[in-house]
C-alpha cells in the first residue's frame, strides 16, 4: 500500500458502527437501505446486511466502516470507487464499475462479500455510500429501534 495515496483520501465526516449485541433482527435497516437506494424493499440488495441466526437469537449486522485506508478504492482498476465530496463517503460509481470484483476481494471486512457485493440484477458491485445524496445522512441509523447501528462523527468517539 502506498502511504502517500492513503494520505490523499479524505476522512469521512461520519462513520457507521454496528453493535451486534443490540440487534434484534427486525431487518428495518436492510429495508430502508434498499428502499432508498433501489426503490424497492429488498434485503438482498441492501448495503447493510444482517446475518440472522434466529434459533439462537444471534444477529450480526455488517456494513462498510469507511476505512481510513480504503483498499477497495486502491484495488479498483477503473476509478469506480470514489470519495463523495460532501460526506467523504467512499462509494461505487455504477456507470464506471465493470463488475470485476477486485474491490470486494480487497475488502478486509468480509470474506463472503457482504459489505461490497455484486448487485444480482445490475451486474455491478455496490456498497454503503452513507446515503450521500440524503440530507439527513444514513437512513438505517434513523430506523434502528435498538441503536444497533450508530453514527460516529469525525473527531468524536
Amino acid at each position: 500500500m502506498n502511504s502517500n495515496l492513503s494520505a490523499a483520501v479524505p476522512e469521512p465526516m461520519v462513520r457507521l458502527a454496528v453493535y451486534p449485541d443490540r440487534c434484534r433482527g427486525c431487518g428495518l435497516c436492510e429495508l430502508v437501505c434498499s428502499t432508498l437506494h433501489e426503490g424497492e424493499s429488498r434485503p438482498s440488495v441492501s448495503r447493510i446486511k444482517v446475518e440472522k441466526d434466529r434459533e439462537n437469537y444471534r444477529f450480526t449486522p455488517s456494513v462498510c466502516v469507511q476505512c481510513t485506508v480504503p483498499k477497495c478504492l486502491f484495488a479498483c482498476p477503473t476509478g469506480a470507487v470514489k470519495v463523495d465530496e460532501r460526506t467523504g463517503a467512499k462509494y461505487i460509481d455504477e456507470d464506471l464499475c465493470t463488475g470485476c470484483g477486485l474491490c470486494a476481494e480487497a475488502c478486509p471486512l468480509a470474506s463472503e462479500g457482504t459489505v461490497i457485493f455484486m448487485h444480482p440484477s445490475k451486474g455491478v458491485y455496490v456498497k454503503c455510500d452513507l446515503c450521500r445524496r440524503r440530507s439527513g445522512g444514513p437512513a438505517c441509523v434513523e430506523v434502528c429501534p435498538t441503536h444497533a447501528i450508530v453514527l460516529h462523527e469525525k473527531g468524536g468517539r
Binding site: 443490540r22 434484534r24 427486525c26 431487518g27 430506523v143 444497533a148
Partner: peptide, 17 residues
C-alpha cells in the same frame, strides 16, 4: 428507548417496544 435488545422480534419489520 432504545428497546431492550434481549428481545428479538417475532416478525419482519417490527419496530415496536
Amino acid at each position: 428507548h432504545p428497546i431492550p435488545s434481549s428481545r428479538p422480534v417475532c416478525s419482519q419489520s417490527c419496530s415496536v417496544n
